[in-house]
Simulated assay, not measured.
Amino acid sequence: MNSLGAASITGVDPEDMPMIRTLCKVWRERYPYNLIRSSYYFARYGFKDFGISIPDRIRASVSACVGWPSKAVRVLADLSVFDGWTIDGADPYGVADLTDDMALELAIPQAIVSAYMHGCAFLTVTKDSEGIIITAAQRRIQCGRLGWTA
């Protein structure tokens, strides 16, 4: 999280940096709440016993049923289907080709689940020595010249 205060990013126009900083600020502010939402989704939020409603003899064998947040998110996410991009006129950045070459139809459903969990999701495109990397939600999909792995 500390690296998001960078003054510049290689390959990014300096006039775009204020918007990137604003997006990073929003992400930082929402991060603690997103951790809680993720815990609910993955059913890892701890069961809190206040010591008043569960008899001692069964307290050790009681657990909370917390799978409903995941169910609610998945039902809505499964109804959202990616049909493609709407690009007016030419495609100067090659978004359609990138989508086909990298099989983004596999990454986008992950971003949809993340959007339902956290209220917003992004696809981040970066490049390393092995090829292009697309990060959707909390999963990393790596694409090299010979194919991709998830």
Rank of each mutant, 00 (worst) to 15 (best):
Q110D: 14
I108F: 01
Q142F: 12
R57S: 12
I133P: 02
S129G: 13
I87E: 04
D91E: 06
Y93C: 11
V75T: 08
T124W: 09
P109D: 11
T99K: 04
A77C: 11
A96N: 06
G131I: 08
I133A: 01
L123E: 01
V95G: 03
M117N: 04
L106S: 13
P109M: 09
D97E: 02
E105H: 08
D100M: 06
R139S: 09
Y116L: 05
A111Y: 00
L79A: 15
H118E: 10
I112C: 10
I112H: 01
A137G: 10
A111N: 09
R57F: 02
V75Q: 04
G94D: 00
T86W: 10
R140H: 13
G84N: 12
I58P: 07
I58T: 11
D100W: 02
K127W: 03
P92T: 02
I112N: 01
T124L: 10
K71L: 01
A64Y: 08
R57A: 13
V113L: 07
P109I: 07
P92M: 10
V75R: 07
P69G: 04
W68Y: 14
L79C: 13
A64C: 14
T126K: 05
I141N: 03
D83H: 06
I87M: 12
L79W: 05
Q142Y: 14
K127V: 15
C65T: 14
R57T: 12
D101L: 10
S63M: 08
Y116W: 03
